[in-house]
């Protein structure tokens, strides 16, 4: 059995990425090999943050005024993905159900993908990077497409998918809860199916697709929420967004 382990890098019978040389696994002393890197890292980040603190002032507007709603009114950037969702579905879904589901599903990853094979290998196999890239592009197209449709689909006086459905006699719950849930499950599910068919993906490779779906959605929604939402949270170009927002200075 020991021969299995000694097999040199690159001679696998499967297509796992064998980029790690056995020499690289030889133990070295933490002092100084790791401690020095940690020290340099800590000093570098301290320096960069200090420079930033010297040259860029933390935002500070006028005193809180419950009467004066800024337009647009935004949460900090890491929640803007959720705030973006808020524009497209029932608030209970965007504000509570989706974030809870995301945390639970993230936590569940190691309990769904349990094989140890591929631990410690960047992108696992030769298919890893193509799957991740494909998943990110697939997700981005869906996200951007749905956001555009929801912004511009004419529905009587308003715009959007939910108003359009309601105009055609569908109940509110169907338009604001059922349809968004259907999209949010269909995108990852279809991605899983495509990756499985096209690449004969195993469990780890399917997980790479799922995480890439999560990551790409987070990044796309955060960017749109941060840089492309202006007055009244309407889609706008970054340079058209009032800064500081009305009512904040």
């Amino acid at each position: 059995m020991a021969t299995e382990v000694q097999r040199p890098a690159g001679e696998g019978k499967d297509d796992l990425l064998r980029t790690v040389d056995e020499k690289d696994l030889k133990p070295v002393h933490v002092w100084p090999n790791l401690v020095s890197i940690e020290l340099i890292g800590a000093l570098t980040i301290t320096l960069l943050l200090s420079l930033m603190a010297i040259f860029v002032a933390a935002p500070f507007y006028r005193m809180a005024d419950p009467e004066l709603t800024p337009n647009p009114s935004k949460a900090p950037w890491y929640f803007l993905g959720l705030q973006e969702l808020l524009l497209h579905m029932h608030p209970a879904l965007a504000g509570v159900v989706v974030p809870t589901a995301v945390l639970v599903l993230l936590g569940a990853i190691p309990y769904i993908d349990r094989s140890k094979k591929g631990t410690g290998i960047w992108f696992y196999s030769k298919k890893g990077v193509p799957i991740a890239v494909f998943s990110a592009i697939y997700t981005t197209i869906w996200n951007v497409g749905l956001i555009l449709v929801d912004e511009y689909l004419p529905a009587g006086g308003a715009n959007g998918i939910a108003p359009w459905l309601k105009m055609h006699g569908f109940p509110d719950a169907f338009a604001e809860i059922f349809v968004p849930i259907a999209f949010m499950t269909f995108i990852p599910f279809s991605l899983w199916t495509i990756v499985k068919r096209r690449w004969q993906a195993d469990m780890r490779e399917c997980m790479i697709a799922m995480y890439s779906f999560f990551l790409a959605s987070f990044i796309v929604l955060t960017i749109i929420g941060t840089a492309f939402r202006g007055e009244g949270m309407a889609l706008s170009w970054p340079w058209d967004i009032p800064y500081p927002p009305h009512g904040k200075e």
């Binding site: 935002p59 500070f60 507007y61 006028r62 005193m63 809180a64 005024d65 419950p66 004066l68 709603t69 800024p70 009114s73 935004k74 949460a75 900090p76 929640f79 959720l82 705030q83 808020l86 029932h90 608030p91 209970a92 965007a94 504000g95 509570v96 159900v97 009512g247 904040k248």
Partner: peptide, 25 residues
Amino acid sequence: GYLLPWDQLAYWAIAVGMEMGGATP
């Protein structure tokens, strides 16, 4: 920490957060 400076940014960011939390089923 965002709420603590009690400026417009703080207040309204929290207002958005509360709107979300208040929507818990």
